[in-house]
Nucleic acid binder design. Structure first.
Lengths: 123, 123
DNA sequence: GAACGATACATGCAGGCGCATCTAATGCAA
DNA sequence: TTGCATTAGATGCGCCTGCATGTATCGTTC
């Protein structure tokens, strides 16, 4: 129990730190930015901010800012939702897709390195 | 691999958030503060800042500030190390020990709740 | 023993996060 | 329609973090 917690803490710290460094230096992306891009690519469609919020481990306000940063970097575009004009959908741009594709191997490499010794984990 | 990472990410977010809330509201401690207190109690002796740094997943600067906060709250005391006058040792106070004892069940309860479904983890 | 690089901890600074709050749009009820 | 509670997302604020750097002490080399 406590051991599991310490394990999670250690892996999280190590991976987060490495991802921040590698993704930042090589691709100009933070872990949160990459995560959001990754989620959008994975679904391969417009997503509501709210949908992203359920999948990413960020508060709604943090997500709002991540999307703002991504938009400023021209990696995604925001548009109002016609069905519910309070809503905003996020759409990945070609440049965003390219940046994600470029960064993906870096992320995989970091995770492979760090979780090499990890016991296979159910779910 | 990626699944393991997502698992770590999810558990870390959930546990961290719950700990922040529970430890904060009930005992006036942040997760980092508790962690440091816990490490000291576990060793049951004076510890050098440096030793703590190896065990806690914080940068040296962050740790320095956590200790400063704990000292302000009178939960630990700082003293210069005679052997190496650059060094600082941290000593838990009676009040610190009491606060830790009081908070420990809260932490255990949170972790038990969150890792109830966790597969036993090697190491 | 004087000089210089290395080490321990503290601190200035910028950036990201969560909480609380704000604004705008929705929808339900009177 | 009008009024009000609810919801989506943006933003002000304070806190915590890491990085870079500052200050003091140590150890080694000449």
């Amino acid at each position: 129990m406590v051991d599991t917690w310490h394990y999670v803490l250690a892996k999280h710290a190590k991976a987060m730190c490495a991802l921040e460094r590698e993704l930042g230096d090589r691709h100009g992306l933070g872990p949160s930015e990459f995560e959001v891009l990754d989620r959008i690519v994975h679904h391969d469609r417009k997503l509501r901010i709210q949908e992203l919020c359920d999948e990413v481990h960020l508060s709604q306000s943090a997500l709002s800012r991540v999307v703002a940063r991504l938009e400023k970097a021209a990696l995604v575009s925001r548009g109002v939702c016609d069905a519910d004009r309070r809503g905003v959908f996020v759409c990945i741009t070609d440049e965003g897709r390219a940046r994600h594709a470029e960064a993906l191997p870096t992320q995989r490499a970091v995770l492979t390195e760090i979780f090499a010794d990890a016991p296979a984990l159910a779910r």
